[in-house]
């Protein structure tokens, strides 16, 4: 699924990285608030779906080579997090949808969990 399609599907607001989204494809997603779970099980290149807006969500995306972060339930990270992600050159999105509904819509639209590393 193209990132732009995902933005439309979940009524996302693009916090950062609109310029990287042109033609960017999302092939897998991983949803968790537990960053240790993300580090253990998220395939590289997947989109992180989380309600955790701390600086650790941004470091997790960097360390685990993730493609972007989607914050659910209207969460939006503070400025230091946004500054960090800006240097990583990945998109940062937020949706008003809950974790369950965001994941449900993406799964129903054909997005897969991806292969565990």
């Amino acid at each position: 699924m193209l990132m732009q399609e995902l933005v439309d599907l979940l009524n996302c607001r693009v916090i950062l990285g609109m310029e990287f989204m042109e033609g960017l494809e999302v092939t897998a997603c991983f949803a968790a608030d537990l960053m240790s779970d993300v580090l253990a099980f998220a395939p590289p290149g997947s989109l992180l779906i989380t309600g955790l807006a701390s600086i650790q969500s941004a470091h997790t995306a960097d360390v685990a080579d993730l493609a972007g972060i989607l914050y659910v339930s209207g969460k939006s990270p503070a400025e230091p997090v946004i500054a960090l992600v800006r240097s990583q050159r990945i998109p940062l999105l937020t949706t008003e949808l809950s974790m369950f509904e965001a994941c449900g819509r993406l799964y129903a639209s054909g997005l897969a969990p991806g292969v565990r590393p």
Binding site: L34, M35, S36, V38, S54, S57
Partner: peptide, 16 residues
Amino acid sequence: RQRGFGAGLGLPNIRR
């Protein structure tokens, strides 16, 4: 735990 850590996965993740 509010930071997304402290679930008893740290050392196992290093080992893995």
